[in-house]
Design a protein around this nucleic acid. Structure first.
Lengths: 151, 151
DNA sequence: GCTGCAAATGCAACTGTTTGCCGCTGCGTA
DNA sequence: TACGCAGCGGCAAACAGTTGCATTTGCAGC
């Protein structure tokens, strides 16, 4: 668990504490391969200890985000999902508005944009986690076929 | 009201109707200069007719979004705000994580990124409305001053 | 090992948003 | 003009996420 030490360090820097609840939430986030909703995290934590509240999960998730260890994704159905940044490294997502699928992209793809924003608007973009909407290849081809058969 | 005709047209294309409630919501969105929360829209609509429900505001806003006439912005405090695309034309926002301020940027700034995504990932990005987090110029200078005085 | 204090938690109430249900309305068809 | 049907809106209930408050707990200093 690479980020527990980092978590502890950043907590200490701010005079905050490492509690069992926070450890459990962090562990649960590690266990899921990709992103997890609050409810999923809560379910996993509840197995280990029944005495953890859902609000604590939300508070911990918010804290992890403040510490830049976690990013939030808005899923297609409006739910929010959370993902540790350390596990897959910093990255962004493409979200298909048709199938709802998420795919990762390298931060390099966004770097030129960040540079443009800095030069043109004096804005220091720190998009921890950009989610860009659009159509994935499969769905785009699907839409083209539909358009053709409709015509 | 440029977009009412457009609204009507797109509704007709889908076999949907232009109702007084929908007209009122559209008018309310026009009246506010920039973005408005659901509650603000509801307040404006309520002046004209007490018999409009908040859920109708939400449903109309969602409909407008489906028709690509409106975009949603997540404000700093977590509230959602809505903005007609037609009024200011398509654009994106920079959001300062310190002061919460929003500023508009031209779609041109994002175009190279869209091209990259298409070439590299086969993804047809249609970011109606990207919100990019970071530090605005004023706040960045403020942070630098703070860092200096702290050192 | 104890103590004090701020941070953290659980609980319950609350806010903002979405959904299901059902009666109403506009419109095409007979 | 009457009928049927799909879209629509109001209402209330459900849901996800947040907040206030009293209690508990981690941890630095002794």
């Amino acid at each position: 668990m690479c980020c527990e030490a980092q978590f502890l360090q950043r907590l200490r820097e701010r005079g905050l504490r490492l509690t069992p609840q926070r450890e459990m939430v962090l562990r649960a986030l590690h266990e899921v391969d990709s992103h997890a909703t609050a409810e999923e995290i809560y379910a996993r934590v509840s197995v280990q200890s029944a005495a953890v509240d859902l609000s604590t999960v939300y508070r911990t998730v918010e804290l992890l985000q403040d510490l830049r260890l976690l990013s939030t994704i808005e899923l297609a159905d409006g739910q929010r999902a959370y993902e540790l940044i350390g596990v897959h490294g910093p990255h962004h997502h493409l979200q298909c508005r048709r199938c709802g699928g998420l795919s990762r992209i390298e931060p390099e793809a966004v770097r030129p944009l960040i540079e443009t924003l800095r030069l043109r608007y004096g804005f220091a973009a720190e998009p921890d986690h950009l989610v860009i909407a659009g159509l994935c290849q499969a769905c785009r081809e699907g839409e083209e076929r539909e358009a053709q058969s409709a015509a």
